[in-house]
Nucleic acid binder design. Structure first.
Lengths: 153, 153
DNA sequence: AGAATAAAGCAAGTATATTGCAATATTAAT
DNA sequence: ATTAATATTGCAATATACTTGCTTTATTCT
């Protein structure tokens, strides 16, 4: 983690009136470094010095403040990823495609997707939505075809 | 449950080479009677004579066979609903809108939605997708506005 | 530096789901 | 209709994800 990034994270916490603690900064740096959503168990594995409960509380605090957003993967486990800048307190705008790779299990957040023109049946009042997709991510798709051609398993 | 429906469910099980057992028929009749997806805990509550594990096994067997499909609600709990007729063994076509009401928590399966023209970034191989939305269903939306106008809570 | 307060850590508990195995029900063959 | 083969159920135990209550520690404000 660069010094600049650390300053950024500290500023982020300040903006949301959250105290700057070591565990919170660590979670921020972990999540910001990945382009895929991460589960609490995965985070716990990487940061084995931080208590499980602390992690849960940090994640829900961040979610409430609009710093990260939650998406459930194929197994129903919560995964977390940094929000785009326009999310606010108790108000998320994560209307993007969540792509869950069936091979590596990663959940990719794919922004910049045009989801306009979706018409709901009469009476339904839309709050927010997310397109959830499954399949193979570029890396795994490559690996699979490579393995196939080499007759490996 | 009408006798006709029962015969239908028995035929359905036969088609999928599943033995016609009381628990399976009961699950089918419960799911078919609802137009919303149902969670395992909810099913367990209604069918308290059937073992929890049996329920899990029935649900995953049905899912594998393409009889029902699974969708996670706001809390990450698995909910199950009957598939449209064109689902097959290990191959689902539940590409429809799952609408999770924030008030009654019901998950509605809204078919007949045009989700074409969704372009994935290069390299992603799409397997299946589902649009997951939250908000108020017609019933709750009505109830809320009624309550508001009467100044109730 | 010290007080007020928020957050972390620990222990215990809950809910959802899974696995192994014995008992039971279904199906097919006689 | 019985019986044998086999699939399914039910039970006990276990795993995993998450929660709650309470004490200790760290942060921040003065």
């Amino acid at each position: 983690m660069t010094k600049t990034a650390l300053k950024d994270f500290e500023a982020l916490l300040e903006r949301h009136r959250l105290k700057k603690t070591a565990p919170r900064l660590k979670v921020l740096s972990m999540l910001a470094a990945k382009n895929v959503a991460t589960s609490q168990p995965d985070l716990e594995g990487v940061m084995n010095d931080i208590d499980r409960v602390t992690l849960y509380r940090i994640l829900s605090a961040f979610e409430e403040k609009g710093i990260i957003h939650k998406v459930f993967d194929l197994n129903g486990t919560a995964n977390y990823a940094m929000c785009s800048s326009n999310c606010g307190e108790n108000h998320h705008h994560d209307e993007h495609l969540h792509f869950n790779c069936t091979s590596c299990k990663n959940v990719y957040c794919l922004d910049d997707l045009d989801l306009h023109g979706i018409d709901l049946p009469n009476g339904f009042k839309l709050d927010g939505f997310t397109l959830y997709a499954t399949g193979l991510c570029p890396k795994c798709s490559k690996a699979v075809s490579k393995n196939n051609s080499k007759q490996f398993n």
